[in-house]
Amino acid sequence: MSNPLYNKHIISISDLSRSELELIVSTAKTLKKTPHPDLLKNRVIASCFFEASTRTRLSFETAVHRLGGSIIGFPDSGNTSLGKKGETLADSVKVISSYCDAFFMRHNQEGAARLASEFSSVPVINGGDGSNQHPTQTLLDLFSIYETQGTLDKLQVAFVGDLKYGRTVHSLTQALSLFDCEFHFISPSALSMPDYIIDDLNAKGCKFTLHDTLDGVIDNLDILYMTRVQKERFDETEYQHLKSSFILSAKMLEGVKDNFKVLHPLPRVDEITTDVDHTPYAYYFQQAENGVYARQALLALVLTNEYGDE
């Protein structure tokens, strides 16, 4: 039986069903436990970063190498026909897809991956399109939550920081809303969750609360998902005031539950003090490592039928 993701494009988290998300998470778990170094032997994967990236590109490329595949591609668009000669993305994609078995891409414009999927002859995996979607970040977040909690269902999850512009928190909220989680959104009012996410949660009957400080919320949580409050969005005085309300330090974790974990998509600046790193609750570096397994899982499912019956 073919798995439902075989030969499919992975463009937006909203395209994936609950059972497909569970399949990806369980495949990541399997591949983390049991490496499969020949799964993509003789397959060529294109790594097309029209916009530069560190973690996403390196973990994608590591995932391909760990599965025995070969990589072609570029780390930024500076030396491509698209960047230098004005070729359309549509034409670039038609050509690149004729060379490879799948490609993953990042682009600075919203909708680029969707457009690419309409011109590609092979599956496209979105590694981030402008401020829109970054589905593989959400998949590694889900895998990290599952790994630490043993379930994705009915968890108490808080998001902290820039909830207005952070695409990772939007996508993860949308994904976890399929699992009956309860949400707590903690942000300055100027950076609160956008209306379309709130409307979506209301339409699904999901429970959520809104806060302007971390105080009083932490002790009942299973997952605390921290993000950076971007300095450039505020004047210096306002930023210094806000910063103090949204910084996590080790002493704030004294009453948390045993299963509690702190996640962060990284890079971190100063919103998590380094003393948190030494507590049993810090999981953001393992979360970054899980990017390799989540991306291996996607490549395995999109390019083969090996994991379809699991």
């Binding site: 359309t88 993305l89 549509a90 682009h107 600075n108 414009q109 919203e110 909708g111 680029a112 969707r114 457009l115 309409e118 399109d129 402008g130 401020s131």
Partner: peptide, 10 residues
């Protein structure tokens, strides 16, 4: 203004 549909043949 940053949507890809502006400068592609779609």
């Amino acid at each position: 203004s940053n949507c890809i549909s502006h400068n592609e043949p779609v």
